[in-house]
Design a protein around this nucleic acid. Structure first.
Length: 699
DNA sequence: CTAGGGTTAG
């Protein structure tokens, strides 16, 4: 069956925001590098006179207001009183009394948490009298930075001064202790505080939920005087049932009980359904909303994405643009980009990239990561690298994504370069980073590097190997022909080996013609996963490779007996704004006749170039030449050749691994037609150029 | 005080 998933027409970019006047590029660069220079100089210098000089520069350039610069200045100054001078300099009128409190609260409010805490510590060590409005912002920043020391100091000061019973202070303390996972202490503060306002009630309830004290939270909600109970209290409860208990039925009951619902209530409930995978209930609720805000749209779009309904998500996005009431924001874009990633919709992804720039949607880390991932997984590694190189900020998440997609493209050197970048910038590699690197090793056969990394990840990075890492290693060793090492690794694992590991070993056996080991592994696997078609196919292919045709037929028979249906190969290609899908041998595409004619022509030309369908006896099709000739990627290729511009790159996405036959076919076709063909299979990318593949036939 | 978003083995 062919479905032509419509993901467009993409609306024209109607109202591009006016372009900012072009700022001279080098000015930006210079200023940015001045800030970097200040930061690194401040980190290095110790002598007071040097700090004085840097301080003067920071004031002149205005960078004294930047968090990192300010924090370092406060840290570098040797005495509290000299740091006080730095703080004073932030205010334009030196004659007026120094407004500590507004300073602190403006730090805290603007997210400059570290400077806020440093300023507070300086004031404390100077014994400057502190009034009650100082404490909430400080506690806020202490909460944000999980700074136990400052929080405790603020608490003890609050007790000494009697401010602890003031509502804003008590509320801030409750929040602080809950964020540390100490609900008992928070509860203690709550119990002693009289009278209470609804903010204290709500904060405490939400804090208890956060600490998984769900019953206590519910009890408190029930005890809350009905006059204090506001919409936030209700929403917290609905959210608790949705997200902490996964009980949408109870959540819905409460939702229906809410006297007057606001948009948050609706959005909480929608995302509750989303989390449970109940897209239709989420959609029903969404459709019945009176007024949707951007969060409602984001909730429903991400619901579709997270539950695998990618074209539905794009459909909703189009609807959102068409209604033109709510402007998509960076959250919307992140979700929509993910949908593109999964569908391989590069054109739409590119359109979104332009949209981001024209609409000045903030390119935060999440958007950047989603964009890099989209380009990488849609086959345009160059664009992914460009976005990564131009990113203003990079965290280990973004770097991990970059490592992973470079690995998928078989670019191990570049992946390790990103890894070096991470280490040199103080980022801790996590599980995913290591998985990416091991994948990179596996894709080009770097056995020693992979082993080295795997064996030292624990001592070097404190990461104990997980199932995924073992999976990478089995694949790495197996593909390299070290089948016994791979087997030993599986046998010695501290955890239960998943079926995937065995099937990975089995496919390594297939590559290396190890039919004896394959037999053992294969039947073990069939016991573990009797309904997974891939294992039968794999084992049967190993047999026919070894010319043990009877046994191969037996495996096929076994598969039939168990009613296991072969998972059909499926390839898709984006042409214009549509994704065209092809299953092996199917004729449902509207232009099917032309496609098959085209394929016939391609085959003739490719055969002249040396393709011979008999070359791979192992190929799983009983259908012989015809079966293989109609593999989905060949259909997609034929369609791509006839419906895209001469010389342009053809990008194909496939759900299964490319078979040997198609691999050869695509190599030759790339040469014959002078086209770059990029194929994403379920493991990695193949870039076919001029008769060669980027995987070097190692896959 | 309450709601929406980023990477993971074959």
């Amino acid at each position: 069956m062919v479905s032509v998933a419509s993901i467009s027409p993409v609306p024209a970019l109607a109202n591009p925001a006016p372009r900012k006047p072009n700022r001279p590029e080098n000015l930006t660069v210079n200023l940015a590098s001045t800030e970097e220079w200040l930061v690194s100089s401040l980190s290095l210098s110790r002598a007071p006179f040097e700090v004085d000089g840097l301080y003067a520069i920071a004031i002149k350039t205005g960078f004294v207001h930047r968090d990192r610069v300010l924090s370092l200045l406060l840290l570098r100054y040797p005495s509290p009183s000299s740091s006080l001078l730095v703080l004073r300099s932030l205010f334009s009128s030196p004659d007026s009394p120094f407004p500590f409190n507004s300073l602190l609260s403006s730090f805290s409010r603007s997210g400059s948490h570290l400077p806020a805490l440093l300023a507070y510590s300086i004031l404390r060590s100077l014994s400057v009298p502190i009034d009650r409005s100082t404490l909430p912002p400080v506690l806020r920043s202490a909460t944000f930075l999980s700074s136990i020391a400052v929080g405790l100091d603020a608490h003890s000061l609050a007790l000494k001064t009697g401010f602890a019973s003031r509502l804003p202070v008590a509320t801030a303390l409750v929040r602080f202790y809950c964020s540390l996972g100490l609900p008992a202490l928070a509860r203690n503060i709550f119990d002693r505080c009289h009278p209470r306002d609804f903010i204290l009630w709500n904060t405490t309830i939400a804090g208890l939920v956060q600490c998984h004290e769900l019953e206590a939270a519910r009890n408190l909600f029930d005890q809350m005087p009905p006059t204090d109970r506001n919409i936030a209290s209700w929403n917290t409860m609905v959210d608790m049932y949705c997200n902490k208990l996964g009980d949408v039925v109870e959540a819905r009951k409460m939702f229906d009980e809410i006297p007057t619902r606001d948009s948050v209530s609706w959005n909480v409930m929608i995302s509750g359904y989303a989390r449970m995978g109940d897209c239709s209930s989420a959609r029903a609720l969404f459709d019945s909303m009176f007024e949707r805000d951007v969060v409602s749209w984001n909730a429903i779009i991400s619901c579709y994405v997270q539950n695998g309904f990618f074209s539905g998500a794009l459909e909703l996005f189009r609807m959102m643009l068409r209604e033109d009431k709510i402007k998509p924001d960076e959250v919307t874009i992140t979700s929509v980009l993910q949908a593109c990633t999964h569908m391989g919709a590069l054109n739409l992804g590119q359109w979104l990239h332009v949209y981001i720039r024209r609409q000045r949607i903030p390119m935060d880390l999440q958007v950047t990561t989603a964009l890099v991932d989209m380009y990488g997984r849609c086959g345009s590694i160059e664009d992914a690298q460009r976005v990564f190189a131009q990113a203003k900020k990079r965290d280990s998440f973004l770097c991990g994504t970059m490592v992973d997609i470079l690995a998928m493209h078989g670019m191990a050197d570049e992946a390790f370069r990103v890894f070096d970048f991470m280490k040199s910038h103080g980022m801790k590699p996590n599980d995913v980073t290591i998985v990416g690197l091991l994948k990179a090793c596996g894709h080009i056969g770097l056995v020693d590097d992979g082993l080295e990394l795997f064996n030292t990840m624990e001592e070097k990075f404190g990461l104990s190997p997980k199932l995924e890492h073992y999976g990478c290693m089995v694949d790495l060793l197996g593909k390299a022909g070290q089948l016994n090492d791979a087997l030993e690794l599986i046998m010695g694992m501290p955890m239960e080996p998943s079926p995937v590991l065995w099937s990975s070993l089995l496919s390594a056996c297939k590559i290396h013609g190890e039919s004896v080991l394959a037999e053992k592994v294969g039947y073990h696997l069939l016991e573990l996963e009797p309904s997974s078609s891939g294992n039968y196919i794999l084992l049967s292919n190993v047999y026919s490779n070894a010319r043990r045709f009877e046994e191969a037929a037996m495996v096929r028979k076994l598969m039939k007996e168990k009613d296991v249906v072969k998972k059909p190969g499926c390839s898709s290609i984006e042409v214009g704004n549509q994704i065209h899908e092809f299953l092996a041998g199917d004729r449902d595409h509207p232009r099917s006749r032309e496609i098959y004619e085209m394929l016939q022509m391609v085959a003739t030309r490719v055969e002249q170039a040396g393709y011979n369908y008999k070359q791979y006896l192992s190929s799983e099709e009983e259908g012989g030449r015809q079966g293989r000739m109609h593999h989905s990627e060949k259909l997609a290729l034929a369609f791509g050749l006839m419906s895209t511009e001469d010389g342009s790159t053809i990008r194909i996405m496939k759900n299964l691994r490319v078979c040997d036959d198609c691999h050869l076919f695509l190599k030759l076709a790339s040469a014959v037609y002078g086209r770059k063909v990029v194929v994403r299979d379920c493991h990695r990318f193949h870039h076919f150029v001029n008769g060669l593949c980027s995987c070097l036939d190692y896959w």
